[in-house]
């Protein structure tokens, strides 16, 4: 399935000639445009997503990601570039309380900070356990580890010092 969108090109820019057809992918759906630069807002519109609730992510061959979250930011488009959308905030639960975060994946330190427990100092330990994450779905974290989350991921963060 493809959508076609027409955008007037900017005179004198590099890259594929403005006004030439350019195809790229958002969430594996092919989008055809007639420009080589579009704003985040325009791209998400074309793909059918609300810029208020979504960001765009470009994954490179080496696995690194670039996240575009500024609606007015202009993205240079290459032919057959692949983008994915992602929710602008994630709705998760920590110790029974609803929280939101833009970060994904979340590291052990991120989760501890979000829990609003007293910051860890030398000799203190917190257990961080989760369910309903992306991969793995159910596990735990120690310092240095991270987990990819989604809406609904549930965390339990506690000390373990009482007998």
């Amino acid at each position: 399935m493809s959508t076609e969108a027409t955008h007037e090109g900017h005179p004198g820019e590099d890259g594929p000639g403005d006004g030439d057809e350019l195809a790229f992918f958002v969430n594996d759906e092919r989008i055809v445009v007639y420009a080589s630069k579009l704003t985040l807002h325009e791209i998400l519109d074309d793909a059918g997503f609300d810029v208020a609730t979504h960001v765009l992510v470009k994954r490179a061959m080496d696995g690194s990601e670039t996240v575009y979250s500024n609606p007015d930011e202009e993205l240079r488009l290459e032919a057959y570039a692949r983008f994915h959308t992602r929710p602008r905030v994630y709705h998760i639960t920590i110790n029974g309380r609803a929280r939101t975060t833009e970060l994904n994946p979340l590291s052990y330190d991120d989760v501890v900070k979000l829990s609003e427990l007293p910051p860890l100092t030398d000799g203190m330990e917190y257990l961080v356990t989760f369910s309903d994450a992306v991969k793995p779905t159910d596990d735990d974290l120690i310092e240095g580890e991270s987990v990819e989350i989604k809406d609904g991921t549930y965390f339990v963060v506690t000390p373990s010092n009482r007998s």
Binding site: N95, G96, S160, N161, R162, S163
Partner: peptide, 10 residues
Amino acid sequence: DVGMGIIADE
């Protein structure tokens, strides 16, 4: 060694 951590919330 044993230890628990219980948090009251909501």
